[in-house]
């Protein structure tokens, strides 16, 4: 869904390839939410070129979502 961000052209962006509805991460995971916010606030200061998108390196780790993804992919084959 990165294309939506590219089309809307916000001045500064941090992007995560996480499931829709989870821009800050998992419910109740305060440390994870805080990490994303701090990265976004850092980007406010660090980004000097309008339209820059920083891809954050964090991978989605919740096992139940990964399992659902793998099951669905298996079913497609």
């Amino acid at each position: 869904m990165r294309n939506f961000t590219e089309s809307a052209r916000p001045p500064r962006t941090v992007f995560l390839e996480w499931p829709m509805g989870h821009p800050l991460g998992e419910p109740g995971n305060v440390a994870q939410q805080m990490r994303v916010i701090r990265d976004a606030l850092s980007a406010l200061v660090e980004i000097k070129e309008p339209g820059t998108i920083i891809d954050l390196p964090y991978r989605w780790g919740r096992q139940e979502d990964i399992s659902a993804f793998e099951c669905a992919c298996d079913g497609d084959e």
Partner: peptide, 19 residues
């Protein structure tokens, strides 16, 4: 879409302008 983010990428990210 929430469980299969790759599907969203396949559906929407191929367009030149998503909006």
């Amino acid at each position: 879409l929430t469980r299969l983010p790759a599907l969203g990428t396949a559906l929407f990210d191929k367009k030149g302008n998503a909006i």
